[in-house]
Structure formats: C-alpha cells, structure tokens
Amino acid sequence: MNAGPALGASDKLTFLLSLVPYLMDHESVSVSTVAAHFGVSPERVRDAVNLIAMSGIPGETRQYLHGDLFDIHWDEFETNDNIVLTHLVAIDDSPRFSAREAAALIAGLQYLSSLPENADVEAIASLMAKLTRSASATPSQVVVSSTEPGEAIALIKAAVARGVQIEFDYLSSRGGHEARHVDPMRIESVDRDWYLRGWCHLRGAMRTFRLDRMSGLRVTDVPAGSGSAGSLPDTLFQGSDSDLEVVVELPAAAVPLLADYAPQSAGPDAADGLVRQSIRVAHFHGLKRIVAGLSGLVTVIGPPEARALTRDWAAAGAARYDEAVPGDREG
C-alpha cells in the first residue's frame, strides 16, 4: 500500500512498535521481505532496525546498559541485510488500535459493505466487532450509512475485471447527450456523488464522469487499455485554461460554500457584510444551476451574459408554478 508522502513522528513510532513484534515472530528475515510486507522502502526498514537495536529502557542503573537494550545479530544485518533479533526489551506484542484508527477502518468497512460485491454482511459485522475489541478506547463515532450506488458499479467492476471498454450515453453538464466509450479505471465518491475515472476514447484523454449522468451503460467486448497508459492524476478535477471567470456578490460567511470554484476577492466589499468574489466555472450553464441552488445567497454581478442566464433560469423555473395547479400533469 502507499506509505504516504509526509510521514510524521507518529507514523514512525507506530512503525517501530509494529516492527518489533513482527521481528520477534520471524527468527531471521531479510530487509527486503520486511519492506515488502509493510509496504515501505528498504531504507526505512534499515533506519528503524538501527534505531531499535540502540534502544531500550534505562534499567536499574538508569544507564541503558547492554542488557537493557534490544540487540540484533549485527554481522547478519550488515553483511547479509538480514534481521535477527537477539535480545528483547519491554514489548512483545502488537499495539492496540487507537479510537480513531479503529473508527477509520470500521467506517471504511461500512462503506464497503454497501457495495454489491461486499455483501457478506456477517463477515463484516464480525470484523467490526473485532476491531472494536482491539481498540484501546471506544472507536470514534464516525458512521457511514449504506448507499445504493446502483447497478452501474457492478457493471463497471465487471468491465475492469475483464479488461474491456464500457459504453454509455452521457449527459454533459451543458445539457448535451453523447455516446461515450471509456476504459474504466477507478470509481470514486465524493460525499454523495459517484464518479468514474477512465480513458475517454471520444476525447482521447483521461476524463471523470458522474455516474448519475450516465444512462444505457453497457459492457462491451472491446479490449481496454491500448491508449490509456497514463496514470491517474490524484485530483478529481483540474482547472482548465478555458474556465470562465465570474464575479459574484455574497455574504462573507457564505464564501466557503463556493470553495470548489476557487473564490478570490474581486474588488471592494459592498455594504451589509456582502463581499465580491471572482469564481471560475467551466461554463455559464453550470453557473446558473449553482447560483439557483444557493437559495438567493449568491448574486451574479458579471459578465452580463452570466447574469442574464441566471435570471432567465430562475425566472423560467418560477414561471412553471404560474402555469400549473398542484396535481395537474404537464402536457
């Protein structure tokens, strides 16, 4: 697994405390085996072993004498890159999980259990109980409810497993329908929304698709992967040079609601605690939906086209209530 970029002291301490019992269970083990097992670099294993071998307890003399320290077979370590623990101090078993560590795994399991192929509810429930017992405190109350991502996920997973393309009708955020052929690579969810990331053959590029905008999803027999050697960027969305800048006015406190659109201060603040911010959007048709969905908190100042589109969108929405009586069907 990934060792992560910035490892703090807590990661390093956890590694030391975990490495000792592992080494105890293995009479002699190579640095490379340990590195592979823990998913870390061989250098990190060597550093840790060096530190462990020099560590111990103050002891009765409070002088950290030889018998109060861990020891290893130094020749084996320095010559053959093998680790043999020859003397142990203080610890002899794996540490418990913290409340938050247990909670992270439990919430992860809850999330997985809502997916179709992890439907073994009993196995997951027993695993959660084990984690709870293995934690040094009551696991943090972070709870993930089951969601119903629908059959799309099962289909996409089947396509990934078979290494084939999928095809579907995609409704773009501009409102256009297009048939897409995609090499599926990964499914991610952000809060309530599910996304498919993969190589889009129509665009010839890596693309992110919302699952709820797909229809007619079908697994094909066309092999995937020929042109999609690139790796996935870690961010779901990248800003684009073609993004449009829009100036909006809103209460200062509401600026965080627009965090996805990189708000920047745009000119002097208006009266009544209102501020002007410029945000970046892919197109004005997306903007009008965002603004209409913020219950009047945000007003578009410019450009004029964006302002007019937003007004017309809301006006057309409001007008529907003039024409219809509740209970009527639309013609």
């Binding site: 697994m1 990934n2 060792a3 992560g4 703090g8 807590s10 990661d11 956890t14 590694f15 405390l17 975990s18 490495l19 000792v20 019992p21 592992y22 269970d25 293995h26 097992h37 823990f38 998913g39 794996s94 540490p95 418990r96 999980f97 913290s98 938050r100 560590e101 247990a102 909670a103 992270a104 795994l105 919430a107 992860g108 972070v142 870690d234």
Partner: peptide
Amino acid sequence: EGSLSGESRRALTKLNSLG
C-alpha cells in the same frame, strides 16, 4: 486523502505487525 487517511495508514501498519 485528508481526514482519517493517516489513521488508516497507522492501523494498517499495526495490522502488518501480525505478520
């Protein structure tokens, strides 16, 4: 990423100690 990813990582390290 972000919240709880560090916790998950450390929990995995502890699990790996079980060999």
